[in-house]
Design a protein around this nucleic acid. Structure first.
Length: 737
DNA sequence: GCTTGCGGTATTTTT
DNA sequence: TACCGCAAGC
């Protein structure tokens, strides 16, 4: 691509960031200022000008989705594939590094990656063996503390030294024990990946040098969310004369509770004195009043660089504030308003997942398609993890955690007693737990012994299967994992279908040339099928999950003291993070922003009076159109559009009578709304949003969204009875109906 | 060793 | 209100 063309559509600031040469660059990118565009164009520019060769580029993001998007956009700019460099998440980079140098990192050759469940189980074991009661140190707290320690690069000894109270000492001891057990199991957890990578690079000069020489260009997205370990990793990779670009916005830092250090970006110039700073100050997303309101709000934070964002998205309606009687009324008001808003994408954003309920109920009642972002995600579902545990054991025969999980499901008569016996035998023989089980030692019940023999025979067969798909298919057929779920129960059928999806994912990985081990590594780092950026449905999402998305209309709901900001207004820094959260929510809106609160809210079963959020007061009245309904619902509702054309594809529509009083949220008029993968066009592969389909397990549904093409084709379907599913039509038996 | 009932507890969750 | 994790029965 021509250089001119590459730079043609950038504003001055963006261009300055993109064409910065060597050295350290901080791009302070306000909401909607074209951050991703700058990052991707910069990579393309570095390559196109010959400053960087592809294999010298290391770009890190936080999510797989962001990484994927980055690759796609760079490739489209370059009009060709991007090969040789690394674009991916911090964790993927770290895992790759550890896989390449397990010895140097002090790990066994084929170490396992343990998931959250494994982690909890190990930790629980540790707590139990130390006789620590749940009341003294709840599992959750322990996990959070250990994670925080690891993210801060503290080893058990160091944590012990820092301990001020007996409880802190206990935590440090738990940490040590947990870590020992993890190593004995030959496993690393998520936080280890980063911590061990840092240690590896600090200790092994050769490895460090090699990486520094290879990756001459580093780029980091969402720098405001980095923790100590990640910042340190970046520092080590950069070496003495880094070519480092970081992009971020402290106002959108919302993961402090997970170890993110806003200081990393606020004090970046202290850490890298030679930094050039480019401020992207033009917002291309939100209409003027929305941006002004958001700016006024975030202006109340003190831990930030003062900045000006100017709207390039034109004027629009003032921000509306709606007062509802209670949370049910809130849902009704919002969906009413949605009907009036007409056209474009829309989202309801809330602080806590529990708030989605009334909205779901109301949307179902009216037959409006909707999508809930988050919830229990595919890869976290028990049935999927059970199957994965088997596969892990095939790849790493000594994976104790996988063994413990797999052997329990389906129940085969190997329970706690047998496990304890095996653990003793393992300790005596000095072998791993699965190895002990393989030897079928004396002292087991005959039933357990036979069960174990069958179990390992199955694993051997799976191991011999050619490729991941065959392995999964064999596993599902022979293990009973599929049969343990009935065909009558709705939940169970969904579980079966999820296992089918696992098979589909394995097949897809196989097509990409991955073997079973590589497939599992990928799975370990995967969390979700893509969150929808836009769909022919209303999006319900927590504020956290909405980061990075945008919608024509946004409803930010539950603006009450105690809910947003959440909690009991303890530390001021907590309130600042809550304010950032509200800010992130507001700046998701392109054309229209509606803020709501309810006078009464049912929380944990009790209804209580609320007070409007301080955040509402922090927005100047001039920017807001207040529409309070003292008596609840009246005048406004009479403005409801008439039912009109039936929107028959509505999910869970029991019959025409209840179908539709709200217009389809993405109306055919479209307007300026159609950005990502726009919904209505018919798809070359024959699937299009709105189409009715049928699936042998899920029954009837409607296509919400079509992503990708050909073999990569995925369709998002909202099933009347099973809800939202992402399917791969080439594998799932999906039919038009 | 696996299913039923009770009580305590409640954020947010990129990997 | 709802779920989850623990304690007692088949």
């Amino acid at each position: 691509m021509q250089l001119d063309a590459l730079l043609a559509n950038l504003d001055d600031e963006q261009r300055r960031a993109v064409t910065h040469g060597e050295g350290v660059l901080l791009v302070a990118a306000g909401a909607g200022s074209g951050k991703t565009r700058v990052l991707t164009t910069r990579i393309a520019w570095l390559l196109a000008t010959g400053r960087a060769r592809p294999h010298e580029v290391l770009a890190v993001t936080f999510t797989n989705k962001a990484a994927r998007e980055m690759v796609e956009r760079v490739e489209s700019l370059l009009e060709g594939p991007l090969r040789g460099g690394f674009v991916g998440t911090f964790h993927r980079f770290a895992l790759q590094l550890l896989r390449r140098h397990p010895r140097e990192a002090g790990l066994p050759e084929r170490f396992a990656v343990c998931d959250v469940d494994d982690q909890k189980r190990l930790l629980q074991q540790a707590l139990k063996s130390m006789n620590i009661a749940e009341a003294e140190l709840p599992l959750k707290v322990a996990r959070a503390r250990l994670s925080a320690a690891k993210n801060a690069l503290l080893r058990p000894e160091e944590l012990m030294q820092q301990a001020r109270t007996p409880l802190e000492e206990r935590i440090a001891s738990v940490y040590r024990l947990y870590q020992d057990q993890l190593r004995t199991a030959g496993a690393v957890d998520f936080d280890d990946m980063l911590q061990l990578s840092v240690e590896l690079l600090e200790r092994q000069e050769g490895v460090r040098r090699a990486l520094q020489e290879r990756f001459r260009w580093l780029l980091v997205d969402e720098f405001q969310d980095t923790n100590v370990a990640q910042a340190r990793l970046v520092r080590l990779l950069g070496g003495p004369r880094p070519n480092l670009t970081v992009v971020g916005d402290e106002d959108q830092s919302i993961y402090r509770w997970r170890g993110a250090e806003v200081e990393n970006i606020l004090r970046f110039e202290e850490a890298y004195p030679q930094t050039t700073v480019v401020v992207l100050g033009r917002n291309y997303r939100s209409a003027e009043p929305i941006l002004a309101a958001a700016a006024a709000l975030i202006g109340h934070n003190s831990r930030r660089r003062p900045k000006h964002l100017s709207s390039q998205a034109g004027t629009g309606a003032p921000v509306a504030v709606l007062e509802a009687a209670d949370e049910i009324d809130e849902a009704r008001l919002v969906i009413d308003e949605l009907a009036v808003a007409g056209g474009g994408t829309a989202a309801v954003l809330y602080r806590t997942n529990a708030q989605s309920r009334p909205f779901e109920a109301e949307l179902v009642r009216r037959g409006v398609p909707y999508v809930v972002v988050g919830g229990t995600r595919f890869w976290e579902r028990a049935e999927v993890k059970d199957a994965i545990a088997y596969l892990r054991l095939v790849v790493a025969p000594h994976d104790e955690l996988a063994f413990r999980r797999a052997v329990r499901v389906p129940a085969r008569g190997v329970g706690e007693a047998a496990m304890e016996h095996l653990a003793r035998v393992a300790a005596e023989l000095g072998v791993s737990l699965p190895e002990a089980a393989r030897r079928s030692p004396a002292g087991l019940s005959p039933r357990a012994r036979v069960a174990l023999e069958d179990f390992f025979a199955l694993l051997a067969a799976v191991a011999d299967a050619p490729g991941p798909a065959a392995a999964v298919r064999l596993l599902l057929e022979r293990s009973g994992l599929q049969e343990q779920y009935s065909l009558d129960d709705e939940e169970d059928r969904a579980r079966r279908a999820n296992l089918d999806q696992l098979l589909a994912a394995a097949a897809e990985a196989g097509e990409r040339g991955l073997d079973l081990a590589a497939f599992l590594d990928e799975v370990a780092l995967l969390t979700d099928a893509d969150a929808p950026t836009s769909a022919a449905a209303v999006v319900l999402s927590t504020l956290h999950a909405a980061k990075g998305l945008e919608f024509d209309t946004v409803f930010l709901v539950g603006l009450e003291e105690g809910l947003l900001p959440l909690g009991r207004g303890e530390g001021e820094s907590d309130v600042e993070e809550e304010r950032r959260l509200a800010y992130v929510g507001m700046t998701r809106a392109r054309r229209q922003l509606v803020l709501t609160w309810a006078r009464l809210r049912r929380l944990y079963g009790h209804q209580a009076e609320t007070r409007p959020s301080r955040f509402l007061r922090e927005i100047p009245p001039a920017l807001v159109k207040n529409r309070s309904f003292a008596g609840g619902r009246d005048a406004f509702r009479t403005h409801l559009p008439q039912p009109g054309r039936a929107h028959t594809e509505g999910p869970r529509a029991p019959g025409p009578a209840t179908v539709n009083s709200a217009a389809p949220p993405r109306s055919p008029s479209g307007g300026g709304g159609g950005s990502a993968g726009s919904g209505r066009r018919s798809h070359p592969d024959g699937w299009r949003p709105g189409q009715r389909v049928r699936h042998p397990t899920f029954g009837f549904g409607v296509v919400l969204q079509v992503q990708g093409t050909a073999a990569q084709l995925k369709v998002v379907v909202y099933f009347d009875r099973a809800g939202r599913k992402v399917l791969i039509p080439s594998l799932a038996r999906l039919e038009r109906s």
